[in-house]
Design a protein around this nucleic acid. Structure first.
Lengths: 107, 107
DNA sequence: GCTATTCATCGTAATATTGCAATATTACTT
DNA sequence: AAGTAATATTGCAATATTACGATGAATAGC
C-alpha cells in the first residue's frame, strides 16, 4: 500500500531508514556532494550542476533540510546553501554504529 | 514523475542511492539486524519477528538479495537466510568513503 | 499417492516519490 | 513603483513502493 507500518519497528530502525531515505536518490547525493565541495556557499547553480528543473531541486533540498543537513544564509537575494557538517557527521555515526553492530555472528 | 533520471548522475551517486534504498525501510533494517543477530540461520521467524505478512517480508528479502546481501541455504524444507557479511562490509566502505569525502570544506 | 509446511510470485489497492510547468514570494535594482 | 532574479509552493501526471490475499512450487512426512 505504499504505507509503512512504523508501529512495528524500533525507533532506531526508523531513524536509520529516515537517514537512508535522504541518500536514497542520486540527485540528493549529488546535491550533498556539490554543496560540500564548494569553497564558499553556492546558490542555484545546483540546478545547473545537477541538471534537474528548479522546482525539483528545491524539493530535494527540502528533504535534505528536513534531515537537518542544510544550512542556508541569504546573501543579497541569493540563498547560499551549506552542508551542516556536524549533523552530517552525526548521521555518519549512526550509520557506522548500525553497520558495525549488524555485521556480527552468522551461519 | 516517480521516475528517476539516472542519466544525469554519476555511477557513484547511483550506487550510493541504491545501497541507501535498501536501508530506507525500517522493515529491511529490522531484517538485516535480525538475520545477523541469530547464532545459526533463521527461516520464516522473520515474519513473526518483524510482524509483517509473509509475502511482504519475502518482498523485502528480495530487495536485500538484489543488493547482494543475502545468502540462503535450504535445510530440509526451511530456507535459512544469512547476511553476506563480506558484501555488507563492502557497502559500509562505500558509505564511509562517501561520508568522509563529503564532509569537507564549507562556508 | 496425499497432506502440511515453507517460501516465492502474482495481482491488486493504497500511498509515496519524482519531476515539471505554472505561479507565488521575496528581495534587490533601477 | 516597476522590473528582474532567485527560491519556494502548488498542482498534477507518471511511476515506484509497500502491503496483503490468493495462488503456486517444492519438499517433508505419512
Amino acid at each position: 500500500m505504499g504505507v509503512t507500518k512504523i508501529s512495528l519497528h524500533t525507533t532506531e530502525q526508523i531513524e536509520i531508514a529516515e537517514i537512508a531515505k535522504v541518500l536514497a536518490h542520486p540527485a540528493r547525493v549529488a546535491i550533498l556532494q556539490y554543496i560540500s565541495k564548494q569553497e564558499g556557499c553556492i546558490c542555484n547553480d545546483i540546478v545547473d550542476e545537477v541538471g534537474l528543473a528548479q522546482p525539483t531541486i528545491s524539493q530535494h533540498l527540502q528533504v535534505i533540510r528536513k534531515a537537518g543537513l542544510l544550512k542556508g544564509n541569504f546573501e543579497g537575494r541569493n540563498l547560499c546553501y551549506c552542508l551542516d557538517v556536524e549533523r552530517f557527521k552525526e548521521l555518519q555515526k549512526i550509520f557506522t554504529s548500525f553497520f558495525n553492530t549488524t555485521s556480527a555472528s552468522c551461519c
